[in-house]
Design a protein around this nucleic acid. Structure first.
Lengths: 338, 338
DNA sequence: TTGTACGCGTTATCAC
DNA sequence: GTGATAACGCGTACAA
């Protein structure tokens, strides 16, 4: 019972079944081709009958470019980045593009992987991570492959940049804390090399400067929950300590909150107000109920995908950066006075 | 300055540069081919000089199968599933395979997408979601494409099944709660159609039966945090309510805890003990400090990838299911009595 | 509008 | 061990 027949249907099979030529079949499945409605019908009928679908690999080979889009992400454990992944996959799929996943956790491996992507004739690359080396990214641009970066600086001419209005978010945070009566403000962020963290701090401190206040700042290399705890203990290790803290990410804020409550036994928000950034799902849980600045991850994803597509059609297009609006979500870690 | 030269290097370019034939180049880059060390050296040198890399698309077309592996996931928002994604990508990459991401959030779209994967000559599919329709999966098996499913039942002959030892985990949870003096036990799980949830409940209730105890159970259709809150309120809506609760996932447990603490104002673990399942990062945060049964996601990922590879080499191999061990992580939501 | 013929870059087969 | 040659399945200029 050796049924090792080639079970795969090609355009030739469909052509024969429909009594037309292979090119007729090809044209039927090529958007924007010229086929007579009659033959088109015949072909589609035969295709459905045989279960034919275009071999994307063959199509890619002869057209020279695919519908693969590399999605580079470091740390799916980051809740916000994970929340970006789903809408990205969705947006790509809606436009007939295929997400090729690329893990950027290991910087050494990453450079290889990014280079390897080139041999797949990819249609573009989306970077959601803060880390990938720009040297490799330049390779893509040299080969006319569109690159979109989310929440990064405009360090690379020719790369599309999509991002939230981080500065406005920082200003919102400042206003909210001031409105709650804050007098000694602090900022907790990630390493100064981190673009979005720096932007949020800039917005925050600029707003404070306008009202003549200066904020204490801690840039911690350790990200996330642990980083937040460390940063908080550093803030309180000398002097009086702040009565209001703006954190560059929600995860930092959760660490800050837990260190405040369980290590220093301080009340949030009565003694110390806290604001985060991102609005991850966890921020809404009752144990934290964190006031935060929400990023619109669906919007970010759509813009990144849109940018890839647009630049695919015209690689030399002028990219104008327009930040995606953010929203203050007021919950229980700030004091609202009506 | 129209530099629209074909900038891409092919094996022919390398062949010419090295003064050999195209075949020699191809053999050099084909694992397990026979090339004279001397020519091999020449080829590699030329390849490096020109910046050549094998065109994977052309290779795929010629060989009839690619190194793409479809990774099907519903809801990256689920922390545990997200934690699976990173090791899967890593394991695949170590074996020279490429993860093609597939979002299963929209069931209607999913069936199309899964079908579309076929036109990419994929080498296999890994399902981490509980939902995908088995009908489509059968298509893959019919075409001799390996399929690995994580934490699902053996519903499909020929599909590789990888999973945690869910029953043992349920037993551990029972023992831990009993050891803490529990008398009125309850189980909170996801809909009965959910395989791993059911298995965990089976282990739990079997262990309890051995000591002559019966548990109250709530199977809630709503998953995650919200589902946990709902389930808990249901448990306490009549009668005395349990003094110990085993939840099929950590997210359910977090919802249960917050409803206990913030809605019913009960003490955890003094009045009610809680145990979760998964050990997501959030379980270790001080605000919850949740005792839980840890799944080894790295191990699960490696096995799934290994299964794909093994079955790719021999599609008819006999797959023996061996559950991945789980570990009880004791934290602050159970009472430990030495 | 339709069919014919060629090329995309690679690997497998076959003589040498 | 090496080099020529034939596929792989598709899109598309070209001629009809």
């Amino acid at each position: 019972m050796d049924t090792s027949e080639k079970n795969v249907i090609t355009s030739l099979d469909v052509a024969r079944h429909a009594g037309v030529s292979r090119s007729a079949v090809s044209r039927t499945f090529t958007p924007g081709a010229s086929v007579a409605p009659a033959t088109r019908e015949k072909v589609l009928a035969s295709a459905k009958a045989l279960g034919y679908q275009v071999n994307m690999i063959a199509r890619t080979m002869n057209k020279g470019s695919s519908n693969f889009v590399g999605v580079v992400t470091a740390g799916f454990d980051s809740a916000f980045r994970a929340s970006l992944l789903s809408p990205i996959a969705h947006s790509l799929s809606r436009r007939g593009l295929m997400p090729l996943l690329m893990n950027a956790d290991d910087p050494a491996q990453l450079e290889q992987s990014l280079h390897a992507l080139l041999s797949y004739q990819i249609a573009g690359v989306i970077l959601t991570s803060a880390s990938p080396p720009l040297s490799v990214v330049q390779h893509y641009l040299d080969r006319q492959i569109p690159v979109a970066m989310i929440n990064r600086g405009h360090e690379l001419a020719g790369a599309e940049v999509v991002g939230s209005d981080n500065r406005a978010g920082g200003r919102m945070a400042a206003d909210a804390l001031l409105k709650g009566g804050a007098r000694r403000l602090a900022f907790v962020g990630q390493g100064a090399h981190n673009f979005s963290s720096r932007e949020r701090w800039l917005g925050f401190s600029q707003r404070l400067a306008e009202v003549g206040v200066e904020a204490q700042t801690v840039f911690n290399e350790t990200p996330g929950y642990q980083g937040g705890m460390q940063a908080l203990l550093a803030l309180f290790s000398q002097g009086e300590g702040p009565d209001a803290i703006f954190c560059a990410t929600d995860m930092l804020a959760l660490g800050v909150m837990d260190a405040l409550r369980f290590t220093l036994h301080l009340q949030v928000p009565q003694q110390v107000q806290v604001i985060g950034f991102d609005d991850i799902a966890q921020a809404a849980q009752l144990a934290y109920d964190l006031t935060t600045v929400r990023q619109d991850s669906v919007q970010l994803a759509q813009r990144a995908v849109g940018a890839i597509v647009a630049r695919g059609e015209n690689f030399m297009r002028v990219a104008e950066f327009e930040p995606v609006p953010v929203t203050l979500i007021e919950r229980g870690t700030t004091k609202i006075q009506k």
